[in-house]
Simulated scan of single mutants.
Amino acid sequence: MFWSKDDIVERLSKIPRTLEDISIEIFEGVPPATDLVFKANLSKEHCTDATSGCRNPQTNVSVEQISIEKELMYPFMDGSVSNEFTVDSAQYRFMLPYEILGYNIKKEYRLIQPDEFKAKFPVAYELLMEAKQNPETGEQGIDSAECYRLEDESFLQYIKTPKIIVTNNYRLHASYDMSGKHVFADGIGVVLGDPTLYHYITAVLNSSIARVLPEIWNREKMQSSKHLSSKMLKRFPIAFPKNQATETIISTICRYLIYLNRQKLTAKEYSIPGYQNLIDFYKRIADLLIIDTYITNDLDPKLLEILAENITASGEEFEYSDDINLLIGLQEIKKNILESSSFRKCRFNNEFTNILATLKNNGAW
């Protein structure tokens, strides 16, 4: 059959399972302009000697000695970041006066009241006072916990829980945050019920399939503005491969891409040619597998065999490594796939080729 854009959108709209079905929580990010969240940078003002830890010169309290003072400070990424698969924290950190009560998937927490906050965490309190200072009156006091209470505190339940952050500057961009510490502005955070699904879902949200989602929003009258909302993201259709091997390949490629994007800024140092081509290659392979999962389910079996043989992951959390040998290894994997005699014999059927062309002609490839 000939697949039109409408055919593809209709097919995706009928997928019964959605991101909401597999998530514990989908919450909106914290906007950087809010007066209820404060930014500070401990390292510049209070870290005089990295070997001895951060020390406040007035209170003579070492931050290293009070571990929760660092726990109060979480990295921030704003919505201007456009790289897929990438988590880059800015130099500023949000200061959130709370404590964690439980460490299950769904975290329990409580906000720390001002007097207790000042007594237990003097360094963090002083920095908060500096950020809170009113330039007109000089007033620095905190009268109530409301002074630093966040309007929507739901994300505090998931501190230290892995997250996927999705922004939509030009199209959807999804980054997987392994540490679970990032709070993102102008985006939506997603916490999944099954921790093993993070890489697969991140890959899907960065695929061509995700670019069709705005059409679904428009047809269902969910697109109220150009900004992404949790309601819109909850509607994202989720489909999983029929076999676990394909899902593992897609998840592993996502881990490759996290590593490659982290290394992208230092690629010139390594003088490795065709760096972007390497990223594009793995993105294209993942995209083919995801489109097949969502729409056709009939890729050439030889292609799946070649990918399963070559695309493997060794070592835990290797995607956060700075080892140059991993970069060289990913080049070798690409070379082995392309030079395989069976790979050259792989064929796409006419239906699959038509779908690719339709997505491309509609700006989705």
Rank of each mutant, 00 (worst) to 15 (best):
V9F: 03
L19R: 05
D21A: 15
S23L: 10
F27D: 00
G29Y: 13
A33F: 14
T34C: 02
D35S: 14
K39M: 10
A40G: 12
L42C: 11
C47N: 11
T48M: 05
N56V: 06
P57R: 02
Q58M: 12
E71P: 09
Y74L: 06
Y74E: 07
P75T: 00
F76A: 01
F85I: 04
I105H: 13
Y109C: 12
R110Y: 04
L111V: 14
L111E: 15
I112S: 01
F117S: 04
A119E: 15
A119L: 08
A124I: 05
E126R: 10
I142Y: 14
D143N: 12
D143S: 09
A145N: 10
E146Q: 11
E151P: 10
E151G: 11
F155T: 00
K163E: 06
I164E: 01
N168L: 05
N168W: 10
N169M: 15
H173G: 15
S175P: 02
Y176T: 00
M178A: 12
M178G: 07
G180Y: 05
K181V: 05
G187Y: 07
V191Q: 10
D194Y: 11
I201E: 00
A203F: 09
V204K: 01
L205M: 04
I209V: 13
P214E: 05
P214A: 04
E215H: 14
I216P: 00
K221M: 05
Q223W: 08
S229V: 03
K231T: 03
I238M: 07
A239T: 12
N243C: 04
N243W: 11
A245K: 09
T246W: 01
E247Y: 04
S251R: 03
S251G: 07
T252S: 02
C254T: 03
L257K: 06
L260Q: 03
R262F: 09
K264W: 12
L265K: 15
P273K: 10
Y275G: 00
I279V: 07
D280E: 12
D280H: 15
L288K: 04
D298G: 04
K302C: 07
E317W: 12
F318W: 02
F318P: 00
S321H: 09
D322H: 13
D323K: 06
N325E: 06
L327D: 00
G329Q: 08
I333Y: 15
S340P: 01
S342H: 09
R344C: 10
K345R: 14
R347H: 07
F348V: 06
F348S: 03
T353Q: 08
T353A: 01
N354A: 01
N354K: 02
L359C: 02
K360Y: 13
N361Y: 04
